[in-house]
Design a protein around this nucleic acid. Structure first.
Lengths: 167, 167
DNA sequence: TGCATTTATTTTAAGCCTAAAATAATTTCT
DNA sequence: AGAAATTATTTTAGGCTTAAAATAAATGCA
């Protein structure tokens, strides 16, 4: 895999060194740092302000986007977590009166879950605060930078999906 | 909450609507999607190829970067996880002979953890494969795009740190 | 010195998460 | 129709993760 032509300088040799992917590694670590930083911050604030966990908030967010409701399988796919995980979180939220769970009319294996009126009201309150926290999180970027970041992350997302063979 | 001046067009009204931060919300969701996608992919491959969990790999990676070793507290800070979490992961890795754990010479409360020769050998093998997986993950971006993404994520990181009051 | 505070770690209780196996219903194929 | 394969969910076992309380050592300060 070595290039036959002589490299012109040190940087070129570094860039062409087979198997060197330190730049991508640093990129991944920085991406992970950003994500963990925000996730931890949001988790803390959700707990302090609303006594709710992040996974429960995320699940309710999915349902708020789809008023007709979702099956457990659809939920697990959209949240990118395992099936069994969704089962237990739904369990709790149904117990708290946030969610309705009823058998699917078309498929007796499946259950459709949706927000109750109370669940929707509760979620909307949390979501408003959440939106402000996230705005604050990205306050250091202007809208051009946000747009660029959005586009580049879109590419990264497609690329990662291909690499890991999703969907 | 309506602006008093007449808006010039629909996009302007949307951009100026007070309290609207949907763009930042979408940005955060996309960032989270990327991160989860890669994390899940790496987790799966580490398990299939090396029968190791991601947290154990991450912990060993921190120690590989610092041959002199780290205290549990330093580890938990760098990994951005809780103290108790580190305690139990170190426990397992010491049991597997991957890590050395000895009391700090300066501070009898603290313990310094480092990779054993075996641990380092094992880690380096995993790290080489990991580096290739990550390169593959970002294969859809050219080096200019990678550089731009790195810079923008750097800004996001600083901004998030400020928002959530880290360090 | 000695008391109060801080710091490093562990423990505890609760919840999240995964992979794999089990169950049950649906779909496909002959 | 009936067997085989697929799909939706739950269960199980194991591990990760957190927050908060407990323990123990170090530091600050009167």
């Amino acid at each position: 895999m070595e290039d036959r032509a002589l490299p012109v300088d040190r940087e070129t040799t570094a860039a062409l060194r087979p198997g060197d992917h330190k730049a991508e590694l640093r990129l991944w670590l920085r991406l992970l740092t950003c994500s963990t930083l925000i996730e931890n911050g949001v988790r803390k604030r959700l707990r302090e302000s609303f006594e709710v966990t992040l996974p429960r908030f995320d699940l309710m967010a999915q349902l708020d986007k789809t008023p007709a409701g979702l099956t457990l399988g659809e939920l697990s796919q959209r949240m990118m977590v395992s099936n069994g995980n969704v089962t237990s979180i739904v369990e709790v939220l149904v117990g708290q009166g946030m969610l309705d769970r009823k058998p699917s009319p078309q498929d007796r294996r499946a259950q459709v879950v949706s927000l109750t009126a109370d669940g929707r009201r509760t979620f909307r309150q949390m979501a408003a605060a959440h939106e402000d926290w996230i705005a604050e999180t990205f306050a250091g970027l202007n809208s051009t930078e946000e747009e660029q970041l959005m586009v580049l992350l879109g590419k990264a997302k497609m690329s990662a999906r291909r690499a890991f063979g999703e969907r």
